[in-house]
Amino acid sequence: MTRESSLETRGETFFLNLRFMLIVTVFVANAIEPLILEMSGLHTLYQWIFSFHMPLFVLVTGYFARKSLNGAAGRKVLLQIGLQYIIFQSLYSALDVSVFHVNNIHYSFFAPYLLLWFLASHAFWRLLMLGMSRWSKSAQFAFAIAAGVAVGYLQLDGIWFSISRTFVYLPFFVIGYHFSFGAFVKLYQQYVKTAAAAASLLLLVGMGVLGHYLPLGWLYGSMTYMQLGAHEWYAGVFRLAVYGLQFAASLAFLGLVPYGLSRMTDLGRRTLYVFLLHGFIVRAAAVSGVYAYIGNAAGAAVLLVCAVSCTLLLAQPAVKRVLNPLVEPSVDWVISLRRAAIRRSL
């Protein structure tokens, strides 16, 4: 095995480990959200998670996208993202109306349903990277930062087409796409990795002490400056500051991620199933009234254990075997229809 292929294999292992750790934080954050205004400890945990988990998830997505961005492979991925979006946007919306009876949600294919913003933005990130393919890396990153700051000035609701998060998190997709695992390994020697891990845990403590000075809306990335109540012309400076926090928090969290191949690595291959399905569990728990019985540290601990356990459950191979047609729908029939249409037009 050549040095390059060895680094590529190690990099894939590292990012699969990271991906599973991140999906755990996604499930935990969504599970504890109904309680963050009532329990300060959960609010601190929630804020700490939001300081890095979406930026890093976008970075990981960019890292794995470089193998399938162009050509037939890229078109196939875009088609599959589109089908996933249609399927789960329909499912979640239908259940909200018929079973969960949830109010105050935009039911429109142009307004991604809660967690499904990631699918819409993923498609746009790929298209944007294709459009920037002839630019230098520095130009791509400069544009991504500028667009992330500028989108906040738009006078509209940032959820439509997931326009706000698409541009706010574009810098992390660009970084992931060009990420050099070799350079990362050289930098993150054991003592640096340990220091980064310690910094991440220190940030958790810091969030508990100073987190009330940072409104959560700035960490969501889904709102414009108008919606965040920042009407000043220099509101973009606040976003640059939040970028600084997210970059630092992400670098720190990477110190907690193991390099080695393990059971976690295999689980990291099926995080899509956790991501697309966990919303049903969280929504069912919310409407069941179970949160009314969680009011102390013991109840919060049980909730955290349940969230991690459900993450492990949804990442099992059996779930993939049963739900593969739903979560990873085949797009071959779409491609066949397109080819047939082209033949008929000739």
Rank of each mutant, 00 (worst) to 15 (best):
R3K: 14
S6G: 14
L7H: 04
G11P: 00
G11A: 00
F15K: 11
L16I: 08
M21L: 13
V24R: 01
V26T: 02
V28K: 00
A29I: 04
A29G: 06
E33I: 08
P34T: 02
I36V: 07
L37H: 14
M39F: 03
Y46E: 00
I49T: 08
M54Y: 14
P55T: 05
P55F: 10
G62H: 00
A65W: 02
A65I: 10
K67P: 15
G71L: 06
L83E: 02
I86R: 03
Q89T: 02
Y92R: 09
L95S: 07
D96V: 06
S98E: 14
V99R: 07
Y107F: 11
W117P: 03
A120L: 10
A120G: 12
W125R: 02
L127F: 06
S133H: 15
S136L: 10
Q140S: 07
A144P: 09
L154A: 11
D157E: 14
I159A: 08
F161E: 11
I163W: 01
S164F: 02
T166L: 00
V168R: 01
F172T: 02
V174I: 10
Y177N: 02
Y177C: 04
A183F: 15
F184P: 00
V185D: 10
Y188L: 06
Y191D: 14
Y191M: 13
V192S: 03
V192Y: 03
K193M: 01
K193E: 01
L201K: 11
V205M: 11
L216A: 03
L216V: 04
G217W: 04
E232H: 13
W233M: 12
W233S: 14
G236D: 12
Y243S: 10
G244L: 08
G244M: 07
F247N: 01
A252F: 00
L256A: 12
P258N: 01
R269I: 06
F275S: 00
F280W: 10
I281W: 13
G289D: 04
A292K: 13
Y293W: 09
N296G: 11
N296W: 06
A297P: 07
A297Y: 05
A297H: 07
G299C: 01
L304F: 09
V305E: 07
C306I: 11
V308G: 08
T311P: 07
L313E: 13
L313Y: 09
A315N: 01
A318L: 14
V319K: 02
K320V: 15
N324V: 13
L326P: 06
L326R: 14
V327D: 09
S330A: 04
V331N: 03
V334C: 09
L337H: 08
R344N: 12
